[in-house]
Amino acid sequence: MIGVIVVYGIINGIIQSVIQPRVVGNAVALSQTLTFFSVLFWAVVLGPIGAILAIPLTLLVRMLLVDSNPRLAWIRPALGDFADTKQAMAAESAAAAQDKASKRAGGRA
């Protein structure tokens, strides 16, 4: 019986500490670290209810402070929103490839 309790505790700890923050963070575009710290922060601020509502409250704060202010777009990658960053990197990579191809074509002519 004690073995079952220990194994259950270990499995539950791994799921709630590692797997759940990663899955939830990917679903709502928050980094795993931010997800973990938001649970800790809101649990301290509001207690157990804060731990349950941590992700929605963090998304609300992000919407009010970051998403509504275009000047804070630079902080989005730190929060886990990589969509704009991936698009910018793809555009930069395509421009570099085009520049390299044009240099090769210019050198041959």
Rank of each mutant, 00 (worst) to 15 (best):
A91M: 09
R108H: 01
A90F: 09
A88G: 00
I2E: 06
S68F: 01
A91R: 13
A51R: 06
L34Y: 01
I52M: 06
G80H: 04
G50D: 03
K103F: 04
V23W: 12
P21W: 10
A51Y: 10
R22A: 12
I10D: 01
E92F: 09
L59V: 07
N69G: 02
L65R: 00
V18F: 15
L53C: 13
F41L: 15
P77Y: 06
A101G: 00
A78K: 07
A96V: 15
A109D: 05
V23P: 00
T35W: 05
A51V: 04
V45T: 06
G25Y: 01
Y8E: 07
D67I: 01
I52E: 00
A51D: 03
F37I: 09
Q87A: 12
A88Q: 11
P77V: 02
V18W: 11
V61W: 08
Q98W: 02
M63H: 13
Q20G: 02
P21I: 14
V7S: 08
D99V: 08
A94T: 04
A29V: 07
S68A: 13
A101N: 01
V23K: 12
D84V: 00
R104C: 06
L30D: 08
P70G: 09
F36A: 14
G80T: 05
I55Q: 08
W42M: 09
G25W: 08
A54H: 11
S17L: 14
A94W: 00
A94D: 10
P56N: 10
S17Q: 09
Q87G: 01
F82Y: 13
R108F: 03
A95E: 12
Q20R: 12
P56Q: 13
I19S: 07
L72T: 07
W74F: 14
A73P: 00
R71L: 11
L79I: 12
Q20H: 03
T85V: 03
A91C: 05
V18E: 08
S102P: 00
V61A: 14
T33Y: 04
A88I: 04
G106S: 10
V4M: 07
M63G: 05
I75C: 08
A90P: 02
L59W: 02
P21Q: 11
A97I: 10
M1R: 11
P48C: 04
A94I: 03
R62N: 08
R108L: 11
G80Q: 01
R108K: 13
G80N: 08
N69I: 15
L40F: 14
M1C: 06
A105Y: 03
R76G: 00
A88K: 15
A88H: 00
G9K: 03
I15S: 01
V7N: 03
L59Y: 04
V39R: 11
K103A: 14
A54W: 11
N12C: 09
M1H: 12
A83N: 04
T35Y: 01
F41P: 10
K86M: 10
I15R: 03
P70D: 11
P21K: 09
R104A: 13
D99E: 14
T35D: 06
S17K: 06
G107L: 12
N26A: 14
A95I: 02
G13E: 10
N69A: 15
S38E: 12
L57V: 07
A54S: 15
R22M: 09
I49C: 02
A109W: 08
S38V: 00
K86L: 09
I10R: 00
L60I: 15
P77N: 01
L64E: 05
M89N: 05
M63R: 12
V66D: 01
A83Y: 01
N12L: 05
I75F: 06
